[in-house]
Computed example of a mutant assay.
Amino acid sequence: MYEEIFPSRLAELRNQKAVSARDMSLSIGQNPGYINNIETGKALPSMASFFFICDFLGITPQEFFDIDKKDPEEIRAITDNLKKLDKKQLQNIASIVEGLVK
């Protein structure tokens, strides 16, 4: 299952960062074709490399595999800020969000 999800999820998250596969490969200390090989299904990263990939993308491993979250970095930032609000503020935000998703 992960072998099927991993390549497309990596490409999706990398594209959100607007970085090429080559540049990402070099940034995490790999050969220029490393990320391309993963995205085309020719290879899977080691556990250590997976952690480097997540660190580069600015996400947690859990966020990597949460395919329903299209923008995990932004969602985490919003969630962190929500934790700082009081109950009334949270109710106001909830009303706004409900209006947006209708």
Rank of each mutant, 00 (worst) to 15 (best):
N31W: 11
D80S: 13
E63Q: 15
E74V: 13
E74Y: 07
K83C: 06
G33H: 09
T79V: 14
F52C: 10
F51N: 03
T40H: 13
P61Y: 02
I35Y: 01
K88G: 02
R76I: 02
D86L: 06
E73C: 07
K87A: 15
M47V: 08
Q62H: 11
P45M: 05
Q62P: 02
G33R: 09
T79Y: 15
F51P: 00
F52W: 08
A77I: 14
S49I: 10
P72A: 03
G41H: 10
A43G: 04
D80W: 06
P72E: 00
L57E: 06
N36D: 13
E63G: 07
K69T: 08
P45L: 04
R76T: 05
I75F: 06
S46V: 04
S46W: 06
G41V: 11
F65N: 08
T60S: 15
E74I: 13
I38Q: 03
D80Y: 09
D86N: 15
E63R: 09
I59G: 00
I38G: 01
G33F: 06
P61H: 03
R76E: 05
L57C: 10
F64P: 03
P61G: 04
E39L: 01
N36S: 15
G58K: 10
F50Y: 01
P72L: 01
S49T: 14
I38W: 03
K83D: 10
L82R: 03
D66C: 09
K42C: 07
N81S: 07
F50E: 00
A48D: 15
D86P: 04
L57Q: 08
R76Q: 10
I59Y: 00
K84G: 04
D66Y: 08
P72S: 04
K87D: 15
E39D: 02
M47I: 07
E73A: 14
L82I: 06
